[in-house]
Amino acid sequence: MAVTGRLELAAFDAPDIKKLAEFYTALTGWQVVRDVDGWITIRAEDGQEIALQEAPDHVPPRWPDPAAPQQMHLDLFVEDNEAAAVRAESLGATRLATGSDDGAHWITLADPAGHPFDLCRKKGIGPGIVLFAVNIDAPDAAGLARFYSALMGMEVVYEGSEGAMISGGGKSVMFQQVAEFTPPRWPDPAAPQQAHLDIQVEDLDAGEARAIELGATRLPNPEERFRVFADPAGHPFCLTT
């Protein structure tokens, strides 16, 4: 397999990233490791990171409304998800739904910027909250999993009717099958990306060639230090060095 990139993190759009950073650090105990103009990076105890990107015109999702989709969400593992959900609500989250399947149990909430996230019960996980996976909506979850697997050298470890998952380098990305999928139209604020992946490459030209070969579309971007693409489902992602 020709490995092009390495998954760095998922970045979520928000109009007030300092407020959102305060929410996630208070809820999870993770630490802010970078705070520059319009960008905050938060690191979990296992070294995984998420980022918050300032978007003044951000239009929040209205999950589960397909006309205003979430596009991406975080799946978080926690020993007592009900206690964690109550804590999240006290910090400004909104409870949206509760679900269970084959013994799994999760509580879906919206963070203060409106992004849904799942608190998934995981016995034996120990104290704290663990980032299990970034979860991406898709009209063809298995196909999108194979795209990112080839782009980032991660292994497809699950495919099913409800979605797919890839893993590698201590990170996992899930792909959720969505029947009424509405793709983002970045940079149109009327159809926001909500979040995007940053993928590190050694060479931008080679990375671009590989991404396009696999089915990505180059999107306009004035910055020279990174390049923006849409994956086959329309989600923007960045190749960076």
Rank of each mutant, 00 (worst) to 15 (best):
M1D: 13
V3H: 15
T4H: 11
L20H: 06
Y24I: 01
W30R: 14
Q31N: 15
V33M: 04
I40N: 04
A55E: 12
P60M: 03
P66F: 08
Q71C: 06
M72L: 14
M72R: 10
L74K: 01
D75F: 04
F77Q: 08
D80I: 08
N81W: 01
A84C: 10
A85L: 09
A85N: 11
V86K: 12
G92T: 07
D102T: 14
G103H: 07
A104I: 10
H105T: 13
I107C: 08
A110C: 01
P112H: 01
A113F: 07
G114K: 00
H115F: 05
P116T: 12
P116N: 05
R121N: 09
G126T: 07
V134Y: 13
L144A: 02
R146F: 05
E155Y: 11
V156W: 09
S161Q: 09
A179I: 09
P183N: 04
R185N: 07
Q194D: 04
H196I: 00
H196S: 03
D198H: 07
R210Y: 09
A211H: 08
A216C: 11
T217H: 13
T217M: 03
L219K: 02
E224V: 08
E224W: 07
R227T: 10
A230F: 14
D231L: 08
A233Q: 01
A233E: 00
P236A: 03
F237T: 09
T240L: 13
T241H: 14
